[in-house]
Design a protein around this nucleic acid. Sequence first.
RNA 1: GUGGCUAUGGUGUAAUUGGUUAGCACGGGAGCCUGUGUCGCUCCUUGUCCAGGUUCGAGUCCUGGUAGUCACC
Length: 378
Amino acid sequence: MIHFRVLKQSKRSRARLGILSTPHGDVETPTLVGVATQGAIKALMTDDVVATHTQLLICNTFHLHLKPGEAIVAAHGKLHKFMHWNRPLMTDSGGFQVFSLGFGRDLNMGKILKGASSERVRAHDQPQSLTITEHGVRFRSPVDGHSLFLGPKESIAIQQKLGADIMFAFDECPPPVAGTAYLRESLARTHRWAAQSLAARTSRQALYGIVQGGKFFRLRKESARVITALPFDGFGIGGELGGDKATMARMLGWMGDLLPPAKPRHLLGTGHPEDILGIVRAGMDTFDSIAPTHYGRHGVAFTSAGRLDMKKTSFLKDDRPLDPKCGCKVCHDYSRAYITHLFRAKEIAAMSLVSFHNLSFYNDYLARLRRDIRRGVL
RNA sequence: GUGGCUAUGGUGUAAUUGGUUAGCACGGGAGCCUGUGUCGCUCCUUGUCCAGGUUCGAGUCCUGGUAGUCACC
């Protein structure tokens, strides 16, 4: 089980400083959760991940179920031992794949839609390549095309075999273009799945419920009311939170007010560098984002001076580190010129170096924000 | 020196044997990628060696030049 303690509640914002204690150690919050979908931070060894000061990782139930299968993971001593990560660990439930392999794939969009969203998904609509039913979702495996069924019972059973410290309830992440009729239907089902996820748990692992409701305050409020009434150990915030930064900050503020202060909150799948301050000020304790690793592999370094596209030839003449203000090993040892050369030569190390830096950059930034909360300036 | 062959963006190549707006890859440039199906996606950039000729129409055929290459002397 886990234990969460709020060390300090800011008077200037909803931000709070906390300690999330798990069977595999403590996590200082607020903090980034590294995304290790298939049991690895892409391009990095777990020892490297430790060196970036990443405290907590999240793996994915859907992906690990397909490869290598939870039985294999369990046979090797569960996820912590399997992936050589003796620190706190979460598993996502597979609920996001209901979106990313469903409407997200059909409509060719992510869960955050820039600009105005038209209502293109209506009540009772189904995505093309999967079927959402009362008991769960029938997927077609993106690995080999075979049919597989994942619902709250199945997801929790898999997550228990994986053995992370914190599990997530099985939910549906609805598309950002869903109309309110679809959202209400989806939300009611996600709420039933939340109760069923709790009922399916037989282990001592923590379980977070997920609040949905899209960009509508009434639905978010309703979802928070239903989910927080259940005996979850913490709460995830899923779905879209508006297409622009200001809207996102406002919606995160709602969530900060709607969730009980004594339990940890996790913001699912959101966190570009420029979003982080708003996330922390809204009172989020943890958030996971693929941005540091995904962008890192595609050549984008996050720095104190903004984003740098390390594929640009102009950096071949630049002898400075990625970020002169960063104290990470990559910034200590390597030049922009070298890293750009590696990207242009398609050397795998390029991805490792920028992923390492980006994670370090996030964690340094969050350490400063925690210090600011402690000092009462944030 | 003589004869043969070749000449298409920065690079490598394609164009139904005279028929749309000269295609593709790499390179170069600009973007995009928020609970990771993708070391990915989108867009842009620049060319028929030179001078003539035949033809409704020439990268394609003809003549000359230039350059490269092979063979022989």
